[in-house]
Simulated scan of single mutants.
Amino acid sequence: MNRRILQVGPLKPSLAATLTERYNALVLPDDDTRSGFLAEHGPTIGAVVTTGRTGVSADLMARLPSLGVIVNFGVGYDTTDVEAAVERGVLVSNTPDVLTDCVADTAIGLAIDTLRGLSAADRFVRRGDWPQAAYPLTRKVSGKRVGILGLGRIGRAIATRFEAFGCPVSYHSRREVPGSPYPYAVSPAELAAEVDILVLATSGGSGTQHLVDRKVLEALGSEGYLINIARGSVVDQDALVELLLEGDIAGAGLDVYTDEPEVPAELMALDNVVLLPHLASGTVETRAAMEQLTLDNLDRWLADGTVLTPVPEVASRGAARSR
Rank of each mutant, 00 (worst) to 15 (best):
G205Q: 05
G9P: 03
E40R: 15
G207S: 13
P277F: 09
A121S: 15
A17D: 04
T286S: 12
S281C: 03
E83L: 13
A16H: 13
E83K: 14
R22H: 03
R174Y: 08
N272D: 08
F73H: 15
R145W: 04
A303K: 15
L110P: 08
N297A: 10
L99M: 06
V141N: 06
E291C: 12
G42R: 08
L200T: 00
L276S: 09
R22E: 03
L67H: 07
A219H: 06
S233C: 09
G52W: 03
I197M: 02
R156C: 09
D255A: 08
A159R: 10
V56M: 06
P312K: 05
G150C: 09
E83Y: 11
R214Q: 11
R153P: 03
G76Y: 06
P43W: 00
D255C: 11
V216N: 07
A280M: 09
P65D: 15
G221C: 04
L245F: 01
Y257P: 00
V90S: 02
T18G: 02
G150P: 05
V90R: 01
Q209G: 00
S316F: 14
N24Q: 15
G282V: 03
L67I: 00
A280K: 00
S322W: 02
R22M: 04
N272K: 14
T100A: 07
L19W: 01
G205F: 02
A47L: 15
E242R: 07
L220I: 05
N272C: 10
R317E: 11
A107M: 06
Q209Y: 12
V75I: 15
D296F: 14
D31C: 14
A250Y: 05
Q237E: 15
A189V: 05
D236V: 08
I70A: 09
T44K: 14
T33Y: 07
